[in-house]
Design a protein around this nucleic acid. Structure first.
Lengths: 337, 337
DNA sequence: AGGCTCTATGTAAGCGCTTACATCAATGGC
DNA sequence: GCCATTGATGTAAGCGCTTACATAGAGCCT
């Protein structure tokens, strides 16, 4: 009968003894295999795997002052756009030997600050934040932490460190311009109440004003919403009460737009003839519904992979050529608008 | 001009010196505030916050042999059912002072094994796995790791440690029985090719056979599918070629069902009159679409929160009363079937 | 042969905490 | 008044690694 927890308390020392080398050499085998003699390398590896030894990464982190952990702070993972970003992040990180620590804020600033504090205490090697952090105190704290940080999902002038995203304002304006260009003249907007939806709304309204048409009708949904789809249906119902009725509506995400679509169908309204509906983010579902959803494509997953790539470059090289990446957006014209 | 990274290298020693106490006392202030004198407690806390001291959790983990990190391994975060589970997990863990390390397998067993190995090296306090692990080697490794482990999304007899889920087979059978009870007699099945979808299919087919009706038509979608919705549309198209045509179809998740719904709508087929469609998991969207989706409700988020709760109980008390929790499922009858 | 350089490995000093145990003063029972 | 008890704090030994520096041998040049 083998010891019940043989591998549990195995340490480098045990491998070193067995292989007749020093602890340092075993450490090198795992961290810089290139510098150890091929024979030694093979022997140590063989012994380690035979004994089922797994290096204690916590000890390694402490001694090496490098955790190989990246933390990401997002509003909520249940919003598909953020899970896409996390997917992109996670895939790149895992491929490069890093792990992902995940925190959700539920759109609450105090939660965000608390999570950041914990992650800094954990001595993560890098941090991915959703949106641009505006809180002065948090910004200061983050800057003095001196670790690579990427802010995402927005684009602006003064990131804490690095930035990957796009201009939500321009995207909102582009959506308005697209609708106006298609001949719609009574535009509605349905959006969340977070910062980024706000920016889209702003851009949207500016473009509407610039085109000299009537100001748009607005419905905003409280941020931690149980179901965006349902909220979208309700919001469109509200918008349809207005006179004159809107002939097109821009929704600040695809799920809301989907809710709008469904509600139109339920009321027998033809989309886009009687009401055009436009979404935002181009989730896989946008292309699959009928009528397919005209939307603004923003590469949610790319934001994640790009953020990971930048973080790793900065961590490993110590500096990075381009701190701000504008991934842009594009209008995907489909059937709904 | 303040030191540029004043808080970066602050340690307990600095706080202890400033407060005129020993390091041990500072440690107690953070870990067992109850045992230190109220005056001392207040003084140390004040100094720590004034100096912006954050304890190094990595050092704490090493010394205390407790990381306060739980790792979760899921196939992919982009599948809503798993992001709901992660949401449940994350919310409970954060509320109790734990962090979540996330890993995606993309439905690949080698990836799963590699992730588990890394997480064990990280000395996580607990592990959440998706599905029941069948690989002998991995099971052995996991058992000898002697940390609390919860397997999820299935229910069976011999978990590695703990288990929270439901019987996919019974759920599949229940879906078949429901459809049969509603008078449908030519049943189709569309599902993923993972273990759990397989179990649902099995239950479904058994129930169909038991009812003495014709065996069901089956379409299986390769597992890492870019879009379940699209795949659902394509699969239903395939199924509609069969003769006699199915009069009802059970989809192993709501997104596939949604794709089926859309395709029916596109072809002008009335749901449920010409074809009944039933989903699985009861995502928020199921209730919101038109026709609303009849589905099997399984509490994806509850699986996460329950897993977290069990893990923490076992970690903190050392044992747990009930190692296997069957969350069950229920049929939610709506318009589509 | 002496002195270089280069490669492979060993030595040992931490990394910043936690915690068992020791200490000491105050308290209370008898 | 003495001793046992309790509460608050200090002492110091690690936790399991990484890494700067030291060492030793091999190969090469002059």
């Amino acid at each position: 009968m083998p010891s019940p927890d043989d591998d549990a308390k195995l340490k480098m020392e045990d491998i070193a003894r067995e292989a007749g080398v020093s602890i340092a050499t075993v450490s090198r085998v795992f961290n810089r295999p290139g510098v150890v003699h091929p024979d030694t390398l093979a022997r140590v590896k063989e012994i380690a795997s035979r004994l089922r030894y797994t290096p204690n990464l916590t000890a390694g982190s402490l001694a090496g002052n490098r955790s190989r952990i990246i933390a990401a702070v997002i509003p909520t993972i249940t919003n598909s756009i953020f899970s896409e970003t996390i997917d992109g992040l996670s895939t790149v990180l895992t491929g490069r030997g890093y792990q992902l620590l995940l925190g959700q804020t539920s759109y609450r600033d105090d939660q965000q600050a608390a999570l950041i504090e914990t992650f800094l205490g954990r001595r993560v090697d890098g941090l991915v934040l959703t949106g641009i952090t505006r809180d002065r105190k948090v910004r200061t704290r983050l800057k003095s932490a001196r670790i690579p940080i990427v802010e995402t999902w927005e684009f602006g002038a003064n990131p804490i460190d690095m930035l990957v995203g796009f201009s939500n304002e321009k995207a909102g304006a582009a959506a308005a311009d697209y609708l106006i260009g298609r001949g719609y003249a009574r535009l509605g907007f349905i959006g969340g109440s977070d910062q980024r939806s706000g920016a889209r709304l702003e851009g949207f309204c500016h473009a509407v004003a610039a085109a000299g048409i009537a100001p748009c009708r607005i419905v905003r949904i409280p941020s931690p919403s149980p179901s965006s789809v349902m909220a979208g249906s309700q919001a469109i119902a509200q918008l349809l009460h207005e006179r004159p009725k809107p002939d097109a509506v821009f929704c600040s995400n695809d799920m809301i737009a989907l809710g709008a679509l469904v509600e139109c169908q339920r009321r027998g309204l033809n989309v886009p003839r009687q009401l055009a509906v436009m979404g935002f983010s181009d989730l896989p579902i946008a292309k699959a519904v009928a009528p397919s959803l005209t939307t603004v494509q923003v590469g949610a997953m790319d934001i994640g992979s790009q953020a990971a790539t930048m973080l790793l470059e900065k961590i490993e090289k110590g500096h990075i050529a381009c701190k701000r990446v504008d991934l842009g957006f594009s209008i995907v014209a489909r059937e709904s608008a």
